[in-house]
């Protein structure tokens, strides 16, 4: 394949494309590397007015703590500011959001894929509109009723809201995935005497996992990355990581411990890093699923 005419290219072109890719990698990854490295320094190093190289070598860090690296930011964030509580909250919210979204979504997506009636189409269209709406527009509708019923600020309320906001996307994704599973499979099971649910349970569920995992990854990202819903709907003791980092920005700047926020930001990035590392192929296929097929 590499010997075909279309693939042959000149030295200059190889040089150009390679440097372009290197530049792109630098732009894409540079900020992350810089912040991860800098999170182990003290504030005068990471935000150094005199010389940016201070952040590389940790000049002030060595002067203040005696070593070129310090876990001071992490200690401040996790122990003093009790960031671990927010981590646990995020874990709870994300886990239940993903599990419930996928349960509802597989049932609904399967039904939509197997029903040729007009209302199935209208449901999908409504889903598309719901999906495009900024989440914050819905949030203002939740607040008054939630105050009235006294359910504001609880993790369970937020989970249900995130599940609902997630549904349009989950339905669309799983619907197009179930369309690719041949109809004959479950229909032949039904000819053999299964009910529709039995056909779903014994024929479809065993083969649906690739699609469910891909959809689950995106549900995870939605719940994990959400700021608009969690910032407004959670009381301060139930905050998840992202709104907590936001409230760090206000309090921490006053006390001069920006490094707490930097450490918290790096901590919150770690799970995402591993997610991409292990599920890169699924993420790529999920992103392109809607596009390449048309």
């Amino acid at each position: 394949m590499s010997s075909s005419v279309a693939q042959r290219r000149s030295k200059g072109l190889i040089w150009f494309t390679t440097s372009f890719v290197v530049l792109w990698i630098f732009i894409a990854a540079g900020p992350f590397l810089w912040t991860v490295w800098g999170s182990f320094k003290v504030q005068p190093d990471f935000f150094s007015k005199t010389d940016w190289r201070n952040a590389l070598y940790g000049v002030m860090t060595t002067a203040e703590t005696g070593s070129a690296f310090t876990g001071g930011g992490y200690y401040g964030a996790w122990v003093e500011q009790e960031f671990w509580r927010n981590t646990i909250n995020t874990g709870i919210v994300v886990f239940f959001t993903v599990v419930i979204s996928l349960t509802f979504g597989t049932l609904g997506g399967y039904a939509l894929a197997r029903s040729g009636f007009r209302y199935a189409f209208w449901l999908l269209m409504a889903g598309l509109v719901f999906r495009a709406m900024p989440h914050i527009t819905l949030v203002s509708g939740y607040l008054l009723p939630f105050f009235e019923w006294n359910v504001w600020g609880k993790l369970s309320t937020t989970i249900i809201v995130l599940v609902a906001i997630n549904q349009p996307f989950t339905l669309w994704m799983l619907h197009s995935f179930f369309l690719n599973i041949p109809k004959d499979m479950d229909e032949s099971a039904m000819v053999d005497g299964c009910t529709r649910f039995q056909a779903f349970r014994y024929v479809i569920i065993p083969v649906m996992w690739p699609g469910v995992i891909t959809t689950g990854l995106f549900s995870f990202l939605l719940a994990y990355n959400d700021f608009a819903v969690t910032a407004v709907l959670l009381s301060s003791e139930n905050q998840t990581m992202v709104p907590r980092i936001y409230s760090f920005l206000g309090t921490v700047r006053e006390t001069g411990d920006v490094m707490f926020a930097v450490a918290a930001v790096v901590s919150a990035m770690v799970p995402l890093f591993f997610l991409v590392l292990f599920f890169q192929r699924q993420i790529v296929s999920g992103l392109t699923a809607g596009a390449v097929k048309g």
């Binding site: 349960t103 509802f104 979504g105 049932l107 609904g108 399967y110 039904a111 939509l112 029903s115 009636f117 199935a120 449901l123 409504a126 889903g127 719901f130 527009t137 819905l138 203002s140 509708g141 939740y142 008054l144 009723p145 249900i160 809201v161 599940v163 609902a164 906001i165 549904q167 349009p168 989950t170 339905l171 529709r196 649910f197 779903f200």
Partner: peptide, 24 residues
């Protein structure tokens, strides 16, 4: 059958997306 399969998802979207729009 369609109704029972779609019910949980539909209920979630109705109560937490459609109704909030009305409420807004």
């Amino acid at each position: 059958t369609f109704f029972w399969f779609i019910l949980p998802s539909l209920a979630a979207m109705f109560f937490f997306i459609a109704l909030p729009i009305v409420s807004v």
